[in-house]
Simulated scan of single mutants.
Amino acid sequence: MQFTTSVLALLSSAAIANAGFVTFWTLDDVTRTIYFTSNEERFPMEPVTVSSAEKTTVEFADGYVGNFYAVPEGDGPQDAMLGEVKFGGWGEMTYFDVSAIVNANDKNNVKQMWPADSQTPMSGCEVFPCDNAYYLWDDVQTKVTTEDHLITTLGEGSPGIHFA
């Protein structure tokens, strides 16, 4: 029994270590609801409310592939700028981008994404439009990192970080 408990503890810790995280950083005074859509509905997630009162970190399952979008609180689900992610992809890498394919006119919700530690590469824009977002189905804009923690900015303002 002790061996079984040790193996289960090891497997549990490995699962936690491979999970992905996105920290939502609201740059203005708008409270927003974040909606999540996983590919093939494999990893359902409940909406999360975020505000400028504090940064909010959300955990994603290892292997999560899908997107999220933000809308002002009370507006309900709708077409919006997307943050797209794949945690635990090829080579255990994290793939991500800001996508304007669904609604390129949404310029006040999801804005930029980058790895939390290295802060590079960055996807998205402080001011839309820009040449660092995904606009067409064949755009080559997906970014990749070895990190499993991303930062996503929401709303008007600047994070005060200079990206190379």
Rank of each mutant, 00 (worst) to 15 (best):
E54D: 15
P47R: 04
S6E: 14
S51A: 08
D117I: 02
A61P: 05
F96V: 01
T120I: 13
T37G: 05
S51L: 11
M81C: 15
N109S: 13
Y95M: 04
A14K: 06
K111A: 09
L150F: 01
F24E: 02
P159S: 12
I34D: 01
E156S: 06
N109F: 09
S158R: 04
P115W: 01
D139I: 09
W114N: 00
G91L: 03
S158I: 01
H149W: 04
T146N: 11
N108D: 13
K55P: 14
R42M: 15
K111I: 07
S51V: 10
Q2E: 14
T57V: 05
D138S: 13
D75Q: 13
V110S: 02
R32H: 09
V85R: 03
V127F: 09
T56N: 05
G63M: 02
M1F: 15
L82V: 03
G91N: 08
T31H: 10
L8N: 10
I16Y: 11
E84Y: 13
S118N: 02
R32L: 02
A70F: 04
F96N: 03
K86W: 13
K86F: 06
V58R: 01
A14C: 10
D148W: 02
F24Y: 09
L10K: 09
W137F: 14
A61D: 09
G157D: 02
A116D: 00
Y95L: 07
P44H: 01
V48R: 06
L154F: 09
V65H: 10
M122C: 04
P44M: 00
F36Q: 01
V144H: 05
K111S: 09
F21C: 03
N39Y: 08
A100W: 08
V65T: 13
F36V: 03
D131E: 11
G160N: 00
S12K: 12
S123N: 03
V22D: 02
S12E: 10
S99C: 06
T145M: 02
T26D: 10
A17W: 07
Q2K: 11
R32P: 03
L10I: 04
F36N: 00
R32M: 01
L154Q: 10
D131A: 13
V22I: 12
W114H: 01
D148K: 15
P121T: 00
T153K: 00
V144Y: 03
A164I: 15
E46R: 11
K111R: 12
A14L: 14
E73D: 09
I16C: 14
V140C: 14
T4V: 13
C130T: 09
W137L: 15
V144E: 07
S118A: 02
S51K: 04
N105R: 09
P121M: 02
V7L: 13
S123K: 01
L10T: 06
G83E: 02
I16W: 05
G66E: 08
I34Q: 01
H162C: 15
V48G: 04
L82H: 12
L10S: 12
P47A: 07
H162D: 14
P115I: 01
